[in-house]
């Protein structure tokens, strides 16, 4: 799964720490998320999408082959 969290964060000039506090996670979680090491839960994905005023589908792109869909 590819995500555009870092891209959206830079466009909106938001630090990792600010985003982390806004969505109630640690900065390390945001770092792992942006690196693709951690897949967020539906609730966290929704919170981040709401924070950037976009949809989950715009923020998180599924790799159909990887997810076996």
């Amino acid at each position: 799964m590819i995500n555009k969290v870092q891209e959206y964060r830079k466009i909106n000039k938001v630090t990792q720490n600010d985003l982390a506090i806004s969505v109630d996670v640690t900065r390390q979680t945001i770092i792992s998320l942006e690196n693709g090491k951690y897949k967020p839960s539906l609730v966290l994905a929704h919170k981040i999408a709401q924070y950037f005023e976009t949809s989950i589908e715009d923020l998180f792109i599924f790799d159909l082959e990887e997810e076996n869909i």
Binding site: A20, S32, S41
Partner: peptide
């Protein structure tokens, strides 16, 4: 936040 962080 640290305790309830989903990754942790």
């Amino acid at each position: 936040i640290k305790e309830q962080d989903e990754r942790n």
